[in-house]
């Protein structure tokens, strides 16, 4: 159990860097409608943070901390939010994937010239968060399952 961990230096650096990379990934996801980036890019960065944790602490430790079922459930919630917001466009407005939140108080400000506020973009921030949840959960659970399976194969 203990030999699959790396040295103390790597563990310390990984545990310092993990929240910073995760915050950067949330920044990319939340500012997807303002700056370059979006759900997929931020989700890939967040999944690479989980991969760093797997490299430093070993797959068993990460599996005990964050269960793989939780990551799959996280991914499914993201996909469900995407589909529900898309279908709400039929009932609230006219068609599938209508941007029905433009002009509403939540996420509804149409930006002026220059720097635009975070509270803009209609349903685009919600869809960005949904795709980000989906990509973080999916790619992290794939890396985790591959690491656990390769450990099982060695014995």
């Amino acid at each position: 159990m203990n030999e699959e961990r790396m040295s103390v230096i790597v563990q310390t650096i990984a545990s310092i860097l993990f929240p910073i990379i995760l915050i950067f990934s949330f920044y990319i996801i939340m500012h997807g409608h303002l700056t370059p980036g979006g759900g997929f890019q931020g989700g890939a960065v967040g999944a690479s943070a989980v991969a760093l944790l797997i490299v430093a602490f070993g797959a068993r430790y990460v599996e005990n901390k964050m269960r793989e079922e939780n990551l799959s459930a996280f991914e499914s919630v993201g996909g469900l939010v995407f589909v529900i917001v898309s279908i709400l466009g039929i009932f609230v407005a006219t068609t599938f994937l209508t941007n029905f939140l433009v002009g509403e108080p939540l996420f509804g400000i149409i930006p002026k010239w220059g720097v635009s506020p975070l509270n803009s973009g209609g349903v685009l921030p919600i869809l960005n968060i949904a795709v980000g949840m989906k990509v973080i959960g999916g790619l992290a659970s794939v890396v985790l399952m591959l690491a656990i399976a390769s450990k099982e194969g060695e014995k």
Partner: peptide, 15 residues
């Protein structure tokens, strides 16, 4: 004007 997003790439990809 239509999507309210400052980033035109995101408004194409998601809207």
């Amino acid at each position: 004007n239509e999507t309210g997003a400052n980033n035109a790439v995101t408004s194409v990809v998601f809207d």
